[in-house]
Design a protein around this nucleic acid. Structure first.
Lengths: 200, 200
DNA sequence: GACACTACCTACTTCAAAGTAGGTTAGCAA
DNA sequence: TTGCTAACCTACTTTGAAGTAGGTAGTGTC
């Protein structure tokens, strides 16, 4: 039974492979249902190796979230440049987010699924989400009256943010439509408003 | 140590108390983090008594969901009556849902928090949610072109449904505004549309 | 070619929480 | 009073997954 040829990677390579395996695993099963043994198997090693690189399951999850966040920050810079036209700004923000979902579906799933069981992990998750959707709040602040901390603004932000997240998840599960089409759906509801559809 | 006077309730009374304790417990901590011992303590009994009434944690959760659903069905009848004006219909639906949230906050929290860890429990949860939000889909079907099964309709429904859920949860955590005000926020975004706010 | 470093493994412990076996006693009925 | 039913208990087993102890063997360096 010595037929198995062990591949020995550098610490960095192995760490990258583990992170990669963890993203797919968390994306597939969610934080709670993902087992460390499962991640290890995907990464082609055994469990103790995981603990050589990450102190705990939570630490691994945190590292995954951080790598996702870093990717988002890089992407976010592209949207930041100011546009005079609010509609263009709005559309570009939605579209940029959906582009992230399209290009990194696993990362998107992890980002959009807040762990329910572990409060600490949930907090981390929400923090990264908050950073990612800060753009929406800024955008809305210009449109909603009442100052940055008004409940109107907060409520609207919550609605838009989670609505957008839900559409993204739905799109991941039903990958028929193109990104442009999904963007259009979101704009139709939130930007144009349903009122215009009702013969009035 | 015999000072404790045991209260002996009928099966139905005890069952009701357990269900009640379970709703608060699930609402507070979520499905995964809620312990059977904790529910038992809240209900004033010990764990085996729970298992005299419910076969498993899942079965108990299911019973809780069913009782919530029954409450919703009763309430739903009030909204069903047809209104000619789509805006009124829309507003009344949103408002009825928020009224449920206001009157039964624990039930609402349980309904709106899909368990992440247990796939079976998650499925149950989503089914009850789907029933509760079927009204939204019907309502949208009149406004969104393309037939009942079009991706436009599904995407819009998802957006509205989860947006509304998110606002409800946010409202539970930030109970400042009145129900009418929250309704107005939702209508402002989804019915009127943000476009009208941007000087155009 | 020998040494050292560390990636990697097998086989274990720990722990929390679900679920259970079996006995005890309240409360009703005759 | 005597007994039966079932609501309730204490104390246990089971399970499943996180985390660990301690050893083995590739790989670059001298």
């Amino acid at each position: 039974m010595k037929s198995r040829v062990r591949k020995r990677l550098s610490a960095e390579e192995r760490r990258a492979k583990i992170l990669d395996a963890a993203v797919s695993a968390f994306a597939r099963d969610g934080y709670e249902s993902t087992k460390m043994d499962g991640i290890a198997a995907r990464a082609g090693v055994t469990k103790p190796v995981l603990y050589d690189h990450f102190a705990s399951k939570r630490a691994l999850f945190l590292a995954v979230l951080e790598s996702i966040r870093d990717g988002l920050i890089a992407r976010g810079k592209a949207i930041a440049r100011d546009d005079a036209d609010p509609e263009q700004k709005f559309r570009r923000s939605i579209d940029a987010f959906l582009e992230f979902v399209e290009l990194a579906p696993n990362a998107a799933r992890v980002l959009l699924t807040v762990p329910a069981g572990d409060p600490v992990a949930a907090k981390l998750s929400r923090e990264v989400q908050a950073g990612a959707s800060a753009g929406i709040a800024v955008l809305l602040a210009e449109l909603v009256p009442g100052g940055t901390s008004s409940w109107r603004l907060q409520g609207s932000t919550e609605f838009l943010k989670e609505g957008l997240h839900a559409v993204a998840v739905w799109w991941l599960d039903n990958p028929g439509p193109t990104r442009e089409e999904i963007t259009e759906v979101v704009l139709d509801v939130a930007w144009v408003g349903l009122r215009t559809k009702a013969g009035r």
